[in-house]
Amino acid sequence: MINRVDHIGIAVRSLEQTLPFYTDQLQLKLLKTEEVESEQVRVAFLDAGNAKLELLEPMSEKSAIFKFIEKRGEGIHHMALGVQNINDRIKEMKDKGIRMINEQAKQGAGGAQVAFMHPKSAHGVLVELCEKDNKKGE
Rank of each mutant, 00 (worst) to 15 (best):
I2M: 11
V5L: 15
D6A: 14
H7T: 13
H7C: 12
I10R: 06
I10K: 10
I10P: 05
A11D: 06
V12I: 11
S14H: 10
S14T: 10
L15H: 11
P20S: 10
F21D: 08
Y22C: 03
T23Q: 13
D24Y: 09
Q25W: 09
Q27C: 12
Q27K: 15
L28A: 04
K29G: 03
K32S: 13
T33H: 06
E35T: 15
E35R: 13
V36Q: 07
V36H: 07
E37L: 11
S38H: 08
E39L: 11
V43D: 03
D47N: 14
A48Q: 05
G49I: 03
N50R: 09
N50D: 13
K52R: 14
E54K: 04
S60F: 06
S60T: 11
K67H: 05
K67D: 01
K67R: 10
F68S: 02
F68I: 00
K71V: 01
K71A: 05
I76A: 04
M79V: 15
A80L: 02
V83H: 05
V83D: 05
V83E: 04
N85C: 02
I86A: 04
N87P: 07
I90H: 09
M93V: 01
M93H: 10
M93D: 02
K94C: 02
K94W: 00
K96E: 12
K96W: 06
G97P: 02
I98V: 15
M100C: 06
Q104C: 01
Q107V: 13
G108W: 05
A109E: 03
G111H: 08
Q113C: 03
V114A: 04
A115R: 01
F116L: 08
F116V: 07
H118G: 07
K120A: 11
H123L: 14
G124D: 04
L126N: 07
L126V: 09
E128K: 06
E131I: 11
E131P: 09
E131H: 08
D133F: 07
D133N: 14
K136R: 13
G137T: 10
G137R: 08
E138N: 13
E138H: 11
